[in-house]
Design a protein around this nucleic acid. Structure first.
Ligand SMILES: [Mg+2]
Length: 323
DNA sequence: GCGACAG
DNA sequence: ATCTTGTCGC
């Protein structure tokens, strides 16, 4: 895996420097797909495991769907875990996928591959890049501090929308009635994987909120995360700013009396079915709930909506420019 | 067979 | 997240 920092500093200096982990998972994944020998197949799940986490299975399907080089990177060799052929982006659809498989000597009966288990390639050469990213999350999690240390006189929100190549980030800063918009458009080489959102979106937050000093609302979770280090907490630690996660759906956990629990621990609060609050960094769970309740009037907070609308506007402007 | 797993 | 090639467990 190619892990690059945006400076020469040691990892533990990343808080001071704002250094960013920038993993090109697309290229790594296409490299795995190219390892599948002629006459063999793999599955979305096996490729996800070769990346380091079965949670990436759907992301594998997504990355194949945007495969820029169908001749060099044989996405037709990737089938479903039950042996059925699955989808293929082509005028002929899965007919073309079957044609390419049979050209390799893989026979298909009905919509399933024959001798599936025998031709299922599993010997990927990989160093499981997602394992390293989980380690990075553990490292940052140890620096999360949910003690109140914020100034709520300035509140801002960030969000990002996407096309297949770029992310369109926007930050809305409420400076007491006046709203300032900042924008950041960047290439994206990391897919959405549940539990790994930070490795797709953090670079936008870093670019937009690098020297912000109020409370930052982030579209996603903080403490409410499989490893207790969602995007909002990750960004808060990396940028050393107070953050709160506001998600539009529940990632995990059990809800009772509007409180979200992971095991015995209270990790988030459900304001409504589209507004789930969890602390990010430098803000306690209770203060996060109080502040977002005050901003939201029981609905999804306006400032987040403004940020989101601007990401959509940006994307449409860019796409209009391209056409 | 249906729902889940931020975006 | 967008017009979206999954997989697992209940
Ligand atoms: Mg978003």
């Amino acid at each position: 895996m190619k892990i690059t920092y945006n400076d020469e500093s040691h990892a533990t200096d990343m808080i001071e420097t704002g250094g960013t982990l920038d993993v090109d998972l697309y290229s790594y994944f296409y490299g795995l797909v190219r390892q599948i020998p002629r006459g063999m197949v793999s599955t979305y799940g096996d490729l996800a495991r070769a990346l380091g986490d079965i949670a990436a299975s759907r992301a594998c399907g997504y990355m194949l769907s945007i495969n820029p080089d169908p001749e060099g990177t044989p996405c037709y060799k990737v089938v479903r875990s039950d042996g059925t052929v699955g989808k293929y982006t082509h005028i002929l659809g899965e007919i073309e996928k079957i044609r390419r498989l049979e050209r390799d000597g893989v026979t298909v009966e009905g919509d399933s591959v024959n001798n599936f288990e025998q031709i299922r390639f599993k010997d990927f050469e990989t160093d499981f890049p997602l394992n390293a990213l989980r380690n990075e999350q553990e490292r940052v999690r140890s620096m999360v501090d949910l003690t109140d240390d914020f100034d709520a006189s300035r509140v801002a929100a960030v969000d990002v929308s996407y096309d297949d190549e770029y992310g369109y980030g926007a930050m809305a800063i409420d400076d007491g009635g006046n709203i300032e918009i900042r924008e950041s458009v960047q290439e994206v080489r990391f897919p959405y994987i549940p539990g790994y959102l930070a490795f797709r979106e953090f670079k936008f937050i870093k670019d937009l909120a690098g020297n912000f000093d109020g409370v930052l609302l982030i579209d996603g979770n903080g403490l409410l995360h499989p490893r207790k280090i969602g995007l909002a907490s990750y960004a808060g630690v990396m940028l050393n700013i107070p953050t709160i996660g506001v998600a539009k759906s529940l990632l995990l956990g059990t809800v009772s009396d509007n409180w979200v629990h992971m095991g015995e621990e209270k990790v988030a609060y459900v304001i409504n079915k589209n507004t789930i609050v969890s602390p990010g960094h430098k803000v306690s769970l209770g203060s996060s709930v109080d502040l977002v309740k005050k901003l939201s009037h029981g609905k999804y907070p306006d400032i987040l909506k403004v940020a989101h609308n601007n990401t959509v506007r940006l994307r449409h402007e860019k796409q209009k420019l391209m056409s």
